[in-house]
Every structure is written in C-alpha cells, then in structure tokens.
Amino acid sequence: MAVSESQLKKMLGKYKYRDLSVQETISVIAQYKDLKPVMDGYVFNDGSSRELMSLTGTIPVSYRGNTYNIPICLWLLDTYPFNPPICFVKPTSTMTIKTGKHVDANGKIYLPYLHEWKHPQSDLIGLIQVMIVVFGEEPPVFSRPTISAAYPPYQA
C-alpha cells in the first residue's frame, strides 16, 4: 500500500516547504509506482550529513524496443522545491554505470533540466519524464558481462 499523506507530512516535518514537497511526492508515487519515499542520511561533499527524503526505486525506460527498470534515487533537499533534487542512478551488483554527458562515475545525474531548475515550472514529474527520454537514448547503466561471456568455454 502507498504511503499516506499524513505519513509523508511526518517524514517531511522538517522541510521548509513541507506541503509542496508532500503534494509533489504524492503525485510522483501515484504515477511511478516503483518509486517510494525513504528517509535516510544524505552526506554532502563537505562531510556534513542531514536526514533527507529520497524517492528510490525504478523508472521504466524504453531502449531499442525493450523496457528496462532503471534504478534511481532522487534526494529532496529541505529547501525543495526551490532547489533541484540531487539525482543518482543506483546500479545493482549486476550492473555497471555508463558514464557520459549525463552521468558521472558515482552515478550522479546531470541534466539541463536540473541545472535550469525553477519552481514552479520544474517539478519531479517533469524531471522523471526528461530522464526517461534521455536514458532511452543513452542508458546510464548496462548489465555487467557474464562470466561465460568474459571467459569463453575452453575448446579442447
């Protein structure tokens, strides 16, 4: 069952614009049912950490005729929606990050949409739609080669 509005209000209790963050979260998890809100410690570059909410899970990305469930994590700062979310692709142990224009080696996602973020024109639904398009052209993760592919069977 989905997280309720009152649960989200509690989770986001320390957020400066709690109700805006709650409403957006509700519309995201209604539309992308494989994303869920999770509270966790986010560690900033300067080593400080803060308890923040992320939307963690997968988004459906269509690539070359197949749909893949690409694992992502969108961190909402406590100033959301007046600052963009911090976004990562989260490869599983069987995946490897494909670095490129939009993803670095840590999985951090870079997009003009994030760079030019401005509330209320920008929102999470719009961001996820952009990700689905961009990742459909250039996936941020690929499956790791299997052992058998890396080491072909020995030919007697």
Binding site: M1, A2, K33, D34, K36, G57, T58, Y63, R64, N66, Y68, N69, I70, P71, K90, P91, T92, T94, M95, T96, P139, V141, F142, S143, R144, P145, A149
Partner: peptide, 14 residues
C-alpha cells in the same frame, strides 16, 4: 509496500 520491481539494464555492449 510497493512490490518492488526488479531493476533491469540493457545487455552489456561491446
């Protein structure tokens, strides 16, 4: 709780 879709990725490319 969400069923939790298994993450998938395109096959490795060469």
């Amino acid at each position: 709780l969400n069923g939790g879709t298994i993450p998938t990725a395109p096959p490795s490319y060469t």
